[in-house]
Write a protein that binds this DNA or RNA. Structure first.
Lengths: 206, 206, 206, 206
DNA sequence: TTTTAATCGAGACGGTACGTCGAGTCTTGAC
DNA sequence: GTCAAGACTCGACGTACCGTCTCGATTAAAA
């Protein structure tokens, strides 16, 4: 009797060799030829894998890349909090700038954000697990409510929004991490906490 | 004598009819089927124009779309400065949110920013004339150096960076234009103006 | 162990359905629209086959047509030798005339000969296997060296050369198969073999 | 009264410079790139002439080529009759072989014959004036009815048919002009002259 | 002299086939 | 049931040439 007592599936098991070959091939090809010219066909050939094997496990090149790079991206953006709020923010923003401007994982990340604009499936993946947003959330949470007096998601936007914009519009003159950190820290100080701020925004305090 | 008195060019002149038909076709198709599924072939057919005629004047679908939508985008984002700084910023940010979230021109804009990540030619176009960045510059300049005490380009990033990030990562809970405006106005107040801020930014004032 | 016991090839085998659909489509279209207007695109569409599938196996429309019609052409020109030399030649020439003037395979043949003038690849195909030349060779060989006293290839030219010329220059008044056969038989009787022949070639020795 | 006394037409007269430039360009390009790759566009550009100017006077590339090469072809094939029948035939066949195998005009001629298979307009041109057929007719007529005892058109086919076949099927071993001439002379000697001949097809009354 | 009209060059126009490429699917035999 | 291999249908790619059209500029006969 062909009963199945465990959840083990019949047939040949998935090849771990094929899986990692595909992910590494995607990674390498992204660096070599860029996202636009990357194709499923090329990934399969580089990986020495049948085309159907790629399609069996991933629906699009974006999904392959997502799985290939998200872990690396998260690692590059992870932070070890010291006690000093400003120093932590400065260190984080420096990491973000390197990530977006130079890193291979950053290139993949930008490509995935771009792809998410066109493809809802990719957008879902990124919404579920976005290494940049997630790392920014971790920083904001670590700063605590004394430093961050606006809602956390809003603070995340203030923290990395300018970085992302500059990365996507490759501006010439960029602000340093220190200046950005200072601007961020001023922005997240809620006016509601300080009654003199409320009415006359834009003024200089005496 | 084959003299050329004026700068008139030889040959049949470019058809204005064909030009505008292509631009309108690109516009319409973007709304109907989205950027990813948009093809040069479809643009030409919709416009009732030969394929070569499209390629003669534009190298890629991104270039067509750029010419088709930049003017509209700039118009949607244009501002009429009142005297009130905060009110101007709020009004501008509301326009930006509508632009990025709902407008057809905004959809085209996001697609172009995404395309610029893959294609250097598109990146060059956008660097030369980016309707969102340009309109933000206009706002920052109008605010004046009393309100904006950081370099203009940096202020632009602070102004629209969070908006762009939210638009590209379609976050659920978004801050209102008022909150964003206040955060921006706090952020652009330079620490250098206030000697107590300079060294120990990130601290809470007593 | 990835042993290869037989010469079985990996991958999906070639579709016989696609192959014969292409050949029949080429055949039909040639009759309907002629060789000049025949396109690879039309062949593929008529065959209900992807364009790439045609290009995978044939480089040009001429190659498709060659494979599609050579067999039919050879069949139309095949002969069943009787003992009578003149009767065999007359019967053969009648078949040739019908083939060149009326037959679909003959139309394809003429098109291929014309194409071979422009395209060396087609010329190679035809040199390797030309149904008209081959059938003429068969006749000449069957006649034997008593009847044909000139080199075989020369006799072939004498046998079908006039037919081909008339077919290619669509002359009005054509000679009958009997007259052509007689002229051929006179022409292939070499003077060198029989010193008495020199002046009165075409006669039968008593 | 706008009467037209002469056949002179109003307006700018046809440019002889343009006409000959087109014909020479077609000639040159045929030699350089071959008939298949020859295009109206290339002819016009090489001639330094507007495209419309070519189309105004010739409908197809075949017509251009016909006008460009027919005169040269006729000149290459023209013969100066001596008294000796066999010598004249040998000399003519040698000229034909050179023409078909080596000459530029011969290459054009073969291309035109090939084109006539696909295009009825070209076929009409060639039927009206075919330099090879015409020259062969001249030879046959010059030989006289003592030598040529079959209908003239039939003799023409016997004279150049084998040459054309060999040229179109680029055979390896070719007969010499002498052998061909002898075979031709045997072939055109009518059986009717000799009462012992087989059936008396196509006979002349005594 | 002025007008008229056909030609010239140039080059953009709407079409359409080219041959290639990638998409995603399907069909083998081997594991 | 997964694997490598590779053929399948489909359709967009960007290019080339088709034959037509619209320009301004010539050119010579007609008015």
């Amino acid at each position: 009797m062909p009963e199945r007592t465990t959840t083990t599936k019949a047939g040949r098991p998935r090849s771990e060799r094929a899986r990692s070959a595909v992910l590494h091939a995607a990674d390498d090809l992204l660096v070599e030829i860029g996202y636009a010219d990357l194709t499923m066909k090329a990934i399969a050939e580089r990986a020495g894998v049948g085309r159907q094997t790629v399609y069996r496990w991933w629906a699009t090149k974006a999904e392959v890349l997502f799985e290939a790079t998200t872990y690396d991206a998260a690692k590059e953006l992870a932070s070890e909090p010291s006690g000093d709020a400003r120093a932590d923010v400065v260190a984080y923003l420096e990491r973000v700038e390197v990530f977006l401007a130079c890193s291979d994982a950053g290139a993949a990340y930008k490509a995935l954000v771009a792809a998410a604009q066109q493809d809802a499936a990719v957008a879902d993946l990124m919404r579920a697990s976005d290494p940049l947003i997630d790392s920014a959330h971790a920083i904001v949470d670590a700063l605590g409510q004394d430093t961050v007096q606006v809602p956390a998601r809003q603070a995340v936007s203030l923290l990395v929004g300018p970085e992302v914009l500059d990365a996507f519009t490759d501006v010439g003159e960029r602000a340093g991490a220190g200046e950005r950190a200072d601007a961020f820290l001023r922005a997240v100080r809620s006016p509601a906490q300080d009654p003199t701020e409320t009415l006359r925004s834009g003024e200089q305090p005496p």
